[in-house]
Design a protein around this nucleic acid. Structure first.
Lengths: 355, 355
DNA sequence: CTGAAAGCGCTTACAG
DNA sequence: CTGAAAGCGCTTACAG
């Protein structure tokens, strides 16, 4: 049993066993046409030589790589790493591997990621778009390649493709109506870019909530930016510069809320006494803050699982409507950052206390 | 310009251009032998037909996939997602993609991950071992395949391979000596399994710190377990069951410390007044806890970058010693959870306050 | 049940 | 500067 550096191939096995490559291949794939005796001999030799099938070669002929590309803005963000965990779980159970790409919120890098994944012949792509995405063209040409793709959480407005999301309008509206019911009137929104689905939809939910309570929308209270902590810092600083603190702030997501929160802590502004604060997503740190964050929970793991399942179904031939939409449930999580919850919560919502 | 479902290949381009496949291939690869005029024609046709080179086919002949496998216990843990982010950054800049696998801390799944990655002909593997790993055999046979692999953060004791780590002994010792200097004597250790490098080394550091101050090691104060939040919960509950709280606890890492912290919060045990608590890693939540956590910072992003660089160097032919070790710097981060820091910090350490 | 032929989409010598 | 031949390691018809 020599330990050669050369990788052992079907040919090597065939030679040693005095069989054809075809038969060895079939034996390894447990093809019914091969005798049990032959299978046993082949398996044993394969083990002895530490044979690893070359799935690259197999992919070339079968035109399936059993690989799916996953593009996230930043894997380091716990929402996305939880989604990816769900994707990996479903994928690996179904015999797929994932190639992980980060766009770093950059449309150009995202386009390159897509090209790379196509070159690698992935069976499909799962993508949550970069905040800087504006141009639907790359997705149109992606569609033309025939490689299926599914959006999760964020999609680019104007691109039709299957997606796994939550009802962002409804979720945002519920959250803001909750603030209104607590007695807040001057509610600011740290909004995301409107070309990105979650930016647009959470803004719409905010507006609908105000409208439902006859509160006029004050455009000065809407500060548009990206989806990351630094954007929350910037927005909060802008609010402070103006010197006119709102009663409450609805941030487009938890990272933005946490950016705002950190600025408040630094400047000695008390949450929720001086300003109430709510986010969206319920990422892991949100419950652990010194002032735990009220937020709308998104089932991140499940989003990843459903997105992977949907993509795999499409890849395995199922006809899926291009506008297929899987909408998962959100859940209002009331914690201390929104203030005055104590009385209200007893009547309406289960309270999740941060520890 | 028809939008065919069939993928366009070199052959298609060649036919349209009245050139051979070879010439088209060379033009696309910017080979010096091809005339500029031809290159221009080829590029333009490639763009027109939305051609994506099949890197699977290329890999088959070149025996390089420009893909590296990354195996982490759980991507959802922020330490690992930060490492992976560093890996992805360096890899993508060097033209490599990453296949991400989770072992879920399970040695058997890890072994399967390795097999899958070998089948996919990855150019190398980056791995932080599962806590349940005991058997070095899978790594020995991995070595025999000739596919390079590099450990990061955690390696399996008894396996020789290049690795990117921190000085865990030194870091743990420094942390525990700091506790001792604060006046604590009965210091418990929530230890990791000793077959995993970080479990062994952080325990050794703990013992060395005690020895340096002539404090006898009390085996009852060492509780062995895994590396996750649930293990911290279990260890803390065991300590409490005994009804004999130590003065301080050194948890093998931040997730374990946070598990212990949550139990304390639930049971009304005050940190640090009733028990001081320190971790290891400085993950993102640690600074955000209501009682921010004192810990030893590991440069996670940099660990990922260095590991990727090292693997790529090996892959590109550089001779690297099998016991090559890249040791990165740790940094003591003093926050409130260790107590009594106020006086001491002024003389010795920079204070990072959680917000 | 086993095998010879052809081919997946490329690249690598080798010729001219 | 361009191309014909061979081959990477497999699988898929087709024969026997």
């Amino acid at each position: 049993l020599k330990l050669s550096r050369q990788k052992v191939t079907l040919k090597d096995l065939a030679k040693r066993l005095n069989l054809s490559v075809v038969t060895v291949s079939r034996a390894l794939n447990d093809h019914p046409d091969v005798s049990e005796a032959t299978k046993a001999r082949v398996l044993s030799m394969a083990r002895k030589l530490n044979y690893h099938p070359n799935s690259i070669a197999r992919s070339l002929v079968q035109k399936k790589t059993h690989t799916i590309g996953v593009i996230v803005p930043e894997i380091y963000h716990s929402f996305f790493s939880e989604v990816v965990s769900g994707v990996e779980e479903v994928a690996s159970q179904a015999g797929y591997q994932i190639i992980l790409c980060q766009s770093n919120e950059d449309a150009e890098k995202e386009r390159k990621n897509i090209d790379t994944l196509l070159s690698k012949q992935v069976d499909g792509i799962l993508i949550s778009v970069a905040e800087s995405d504006r141009d639907p063209q790359p997705f149109r040409s992606l569609r033309q390649t025939g490689t299926p793709f599914v959006f999760f959480d964020r999609y680019l407005v104007g691109v039709e493709a299957p997606r796994v999301i939550v009802d962002d309008v409804e979720g945002a509206q519920q959250l803001v109506e909750y603030l209104i019911q607590l007695g807040y009137q001057r509610i600011a929104h740290f909004a995301g870019y409107p070309q990105i689905s979650i930016g647009r939809d959470r803004l719409v939910g905010y507006q609908k909530a105000l409208a439902a309570h006859y509160i006029p929308v004050d455009p000065h209270l809407i500060i548009e930016g990206g989806f990351n902590e630094r954007d929350g810092v910037v927005a909060m600083e802008e609010i402070l510069t103006r010197g006119d603190l709102p009663e409450a702030i609805f941030a487009v997501n938890d990272p933005v809320a946490i950016g705002a929160y950190k600025v408040c802590m630094e400047k000695g502004i008390r949450v929720p006494e001086d300003v109430a604060l709510v986010g969206f997503s319920d990422i892991d740190v949100s419950s652990l803050l010194a002032v735990p964050l009220t937020t709308m929970r998104q089932p991140a793991l499940q989003i990843g699982q459903e997105a992977a399942r949907l993509l795999i179904r499409i890849n395995e031939g199922e006809e899926v409507n291009p506008s297929e939409e899987i909408v998962l449930k959100t859940e209002l999580i009331v914690r201390r950052s929104c203030g005055s919850a104590i009385a209200w919560q007893k009547r309406h919502v289960k309270v999740h206390e941060g520890v």
